[in-house]
Amino acid sequence: MLIDEKGIRTDGRKWNELRPIKMEVGVLKNADGSCYIEFGKNKIMVAVYGPKEVHPRHMALSDRCLLRCRYHMSPFSTTTRKNPAPSRREIEISKVLREALEPSLILEDYPRTAIDVFVEILQSDGGSRCAGITAASVALADAGINMRDLVSAVAVGKVDGKIVLDLNDVEDKEGEADMPVAIMPNLNRVTLFQFEGILTKEEFEKAYELALKSVKKIYKIQREALYEKYFEGEVKVE
């Protein structure tokens, strides 16, 4: 039983409620851009280095910047110790994360250089890739990379036969479906979509619409975090 008879989830949320989210921009002094995010029990640090010279040299692209992403879980981030070597899951997530961020960046503006995005999961909960993308996009803005839009991400899924927003750890593991989605909110374009589980077409549509709607709330938090650092939060975010 992950949802009780009153429709309340294990952590006290309703079906369409997000977990508490906290973001802080510019927390790492050495990085060109950085962002720390707490998303439910997720604690994630993102650092952006670049644009910078490419090593090894032969990897440089003559017409645009080389974007590299690494999603990595700290050994202590999970209940049982996680082997620090990158797993196949982490390699796949690193790839989809890069592909989720790339559409927002104008990489052609920085030929022959590289941008590295490091997403370090210090403590993991459900939805760490979405929280990671959300923080990484803000860290890229902090690094002052030319970008057309921010990228905001959230997962939806099915738990105890019901479509729910923002799956936590248990819901992620024991739920019937999980669908992480990332969009560029102003341009209204999908940059990440993954799905696992069983959904009818109608359920799929309902879940997807929920993701598209809810991601705007994440976007608002991203803007507030950037305003807080750059404009001392003194200007109201519309």
Binding site: E102, P103, I183, R189, V190, Q194, F195, E205
Partner: peptide, 29 residues
């Protein structure tokens, strides 16, 4: 997109470094 015997969706993945309009996904389904 992966479809099972009952016509339900069971897996999906977007790849590639571009993006798509949200309504395209339901068209793809």
């Amino acid at each position: 997109l992966v479809v099972d015997e009952e016509g339900r969706l069971c897996a999906g993945q977007k790849g590639g470094s571009g993006s798509l309009r949200p309504e395209k996904l339901m068209e793809a389904v």
